[in-house]
Amino acid sequence: MPAVRAPLPVACALSSLFADGGLPRGRTVACTGDAALSAALALSAAATRAGSWLAVVGVPQLGVGAALESGVAIERLVLAQPPTTSREWVTTVAALVEGFEVLVVAPPASLTEHDARRLQSRIVARQSVLVVVHVPVPPSVVVGSGVGHRTGSGASRVFSADLDVHANTESWSGIERGGSHITQRTVHLRVGGRRAPLSREATLDWSCLNDQPVS
């Protein structure tokens, strides 16, 4: 067994969600809910500011503005578009694990459980963190190789996640029937799963997550 290393840092507001105060290394985290992608970015942000590199795999339409707002150091952010066949996808992501401490992945529908396990064992060996997102876009929305290609729930379940993060928007404020615009998003987060016997919850204003002021 590799030696246990300190968890990857997360923003202060999120640290109470994890037993060790951060993302445990070598683990697979599954993000679900309508705010899954935002949650995945928020969880990875503090680590990138501390020097870790972040690869976002299979989300070519990532809104980098959202990543920046959640505090991701985008000079250490890259996007990868591996082939969508199960074997090639895993080989490519496993190659990325060698250099990236955080990987946010939207797996292709073709991914098999066997290949998912192979990737998870690389994650354990390298002590990186794999964040699997279930991008909640209906499959009909995006054609081609985009996020809609994955059926989401099905594909993300081939991973046996150590932690489950469920992120749901509780309220949107600012927007009315015809006036203003969205100014605030309140998200309810629940972290549970087989490595977290006690599930922890928090309701957070999304704009307060970022420890670092956005200019």
Binding site: L79, A80, Q81, P82, L96, G99, F100
Partner: peptide, 22 residues
């Protein structure tokens, strides 16, 4: 350096467009 090496390895197999930088 590790990250750059990983990017190189992937792009060698799947082409330079397979990894992009915002």
């Amino acid at each position: 350096r590790h990250a750059q090496r990983a990017i190189r390895r992937v792009t060698e197999v799947h082409g330079a467009e397979s990894v992009t930088i915002p």
